[in-house]
Write a protein that binds this DNA or RNA. Sequence first.
DNA 1: GAGCACTGC
Length: 624
Amino acid sequence: MTNGQIPKKMRLGSNEDDFYQRLQQQRRSLPIHPARGRLIHEVQRHSSVIVIGETGSGKTTQIPQYLYEAGLHRNAVIAVTQPRRVAAITISKRVAQEKKTELGHLVGYCVRFEDVTTDSTKLKYMTDGMLLREAILDPLLKRYSVVILDEAHERTIHTDVLFGVVKAAQRQRAEQGLKHIKIVVMSATMDVDHFSKYFNNAPVLYLEGRQYPIQVFYSVEHQTDYMFASLVTLFQIHKKEPAQKDVLIFLTGQEEIESAVKSIRDIAKEITGAPNLVVYPLYSSLPSFAQMRVFQPTPEGCRKVVVATNIAETSVTIQGIKFVIDSGMVKAKVYNPNSGLDLLKVVRVAKDQALQRTGRAGREAPGICYRLYTEDEFETFSNTTVPEIQRCNLASVVLQLLAMHITDVAAFDFMDKPSPEAVKKALEQLELLSAVEKRERYKLTPLGRQMAAFPLDPRLSKVILTAKDFQCLEEILTIVSVLSVDSVLFTPPNKQWCHENFIDMRNMKTAQEVRRQLKEICERQELPIQSCGRDTVPIRKCLAAGFFMSAAELQREGEYVTLSTRKVVSIHPSSVLFRCKPGYVLYNELTQTSKCYMRDLCVIDAEWLYDTAPNYFRNKKPGR
DNA sequence: GAGCACTGC
């Protein structure tokens, strides 16, 4: 999809009807159009259908319309889920245009902080996380007659949980004699059998796309320095290829990308007899005005080079890319459930990810992809990226499943199960927070049910719900909001001039919106929003109630050990507590870099830990 | 005395 806006040129000199006619003509010329009848037929006959379509097939905009036009919505709502907010919003805008209706009526969207739907909305584009949240209130998804799960191959944690939730809703609605629900899974994967089997051997429809052929070249030898190799490759292309043929380079992170951009600009100055280069970095923490630069059309006689993270694999699509240079590396978060330790590590991509990168070269014309690894090396890459649900903390997901009355989470029908240890760990954490209790089975406590209403890590929900006992919810709402978004403190990549007051506006605005949302939920739960003034004790006691399992104790030698696993840790140099030596601290996060660092700290008294979790600390003896 | 892949509720 493009950005869903109507190009200005199209509007000028043509009246509204012409515009609409042209849209309809475009619809009919999409590669998916000939499959319309078959698709409707299959969805009528089967309760679940898998649709495999390459990019550019038009499946995301057209299939929901086809089903609606065939009356398959049966006067209820067709939900179409997307992993990303922007996609949900822009696609719904496009479909509203095609349906010639105002957005929010027949066609609408629903993402966090924004619900553009009405009672008349029948085609509802939404994020997968949003539908999952709705399922907590209504596990049978009664408002929906069809659920379309798009981009299923991305296997986000939300999509994976939704697979099980919609499948269960389908079965239970049938058992209870309620109106049936159709499931359509749309994916670009080649692992079709896996999807089909999971959905009771659902039929598979293959759609043609509009992907142009791409030639793939591998390195002849193993590359020890992919940064260097990417520069060499770029300038080989640059010297022989005509201008306007743009290049996209995949590297791993901000620092690497900024340094590559600088090198490219420096080298380009020395080169004569080749087109001018315009070079742009692209990564998510880049301010959006800087991200937008990559969309500027390449000036006449120039070549555009974009050096990007994996943001350019799916989230950002750049027109005019002819060459892709793939380092074969990606920076990924590695989570260790036992130590609770996070670390960012540069690792090999999987084959599916390499394929996705390659595909970025053939969106408008045939392209070429240079892989900076040998074909033999490629063969050793794993086939698919491990689904998110198998590599992160499950506390939040398990709480949500319990809130949907799924009592045996370990036996839940996941397409790919998380490890039993990870589920056990999550249940233990929830038990420590008093969100669940173990009888014969784990059961949600009233506190746990309240916690599930918050779109937060359970530790943060617990902090909020503790605040009413300490009359400090006003302050806690702010602290929790800031803790639940990316850092609101801005570190300029080049430290020449600190004109932004070191505040990241985007993240600060998100924190504001989060606070507004959390406050609403608190008001609905009738929690009194009171302030404790300048006294920080009640605030820190609340934080202790949610984070007591993330506490560390100062040792005689001047270092810290965690109370949970006796791991040696240090205060991060960016903390205001660096060089201070408080006896006890709570931390939000452990990050392994040159040392194991605690981030986002709070000074506490050992006594508070006993007070808030006496059983947990009985054998750990902080301060005794 | 430091180094921040990407999403989402």
